Simulated assay, not measured.
Amino acid sequence: MTVSKSKIYSLLLFVMLLWGMNVIATKILVTSFMPVTMTAFRIFTAGCIVFLILGFLKAVRLPKGKEWFYIFIGSLFNVVGHHYFLSVGLTKTSATNTGLILGMAPLLTAILAMLFLKDKATVLKVVGVLLGFFGVSFVILGNGESLHHISSGDIDIFLSILSQSVSFITIKKASKTIDPRLMTGYMLIFGSALLFVISLIIEPSGLSSMTRGSIAAWSLFLLSALLATAFGHMIYNYSVGKIGAAEASIFINFNPFFALIGSLLFLGETIVWKQLLGFIFIILGVTLGSGAYEELMRRFARKRHVYMK
Rank of each mutant, 00 (worst) to 15 (best):
V79S: 11
L131M: 12
M104T: 14
T109Y: 02
L107Q: 05
S75R: 00
L102T: 01
H83Y: 15
A105E: 13
T96H: 01
H83T: 05
F134D: 06
V79P: 09
H82K: 11
V126S: 01
F85A: 03
G135K: 06
V136P: 11
A121S: 12
V79K: 07
Y84C: 05
S137N: 13
L112H: 03
K120D: 14
H83I: 07
A105L: 14
T91N: 00
V88F: 13
V127D: 05
F72A: 13
M114L: 07
F77M: 11
S137D: 10
V88I: 14
V136M: 15
L117A: 05
A121E: 12
L102M: 12
K118D: 15
S75D: 09
P106G: 04
S94E: 08
F133E: 02
G103Y: 01
F133D: 08
V127P: 01
H82D: 04
N78S: 15
G81Q: 09
A110H: 04
G103P: 08
G99W: 03
K92P: 02
I101H: 08
I71Y: 06
L124D: 14
F133M: 05
V127I: 15
T98G: 08
L117Q: 03
F116E: 05
T93G: 04
L115N: 03
K92D: 09
S137T: 10
F77W: 12
G128I: 04
G99E: 02
K120E: 15
G81Y: 05
V127G: 02
G99Y: 06
T91P: 06
K125Y: 14
L124Y: 15
I71D: 08
S137Q: 12
F72P: 11
A105Y: 11
A110K: 08
K92S: 13
L108N: 10
G128Q: 04
F133W: 01
F77P: 10
V129R: 07
F133I: 03
L130Q: 06
L107R: 14
L100F: 02
G128S: 00
K120R: 14
F85S: 05
L76A: 15
G135A: 08
V127T: 14
P106S: 00
F116H: 09
L131V: 06
T122F: 08
T122D: 05
A110I: 09
M114K: 09
A121T: 13
L90S: 10
S87C: 06
L86G: 00
L100W: 00
G135P: 05
D119F: 05
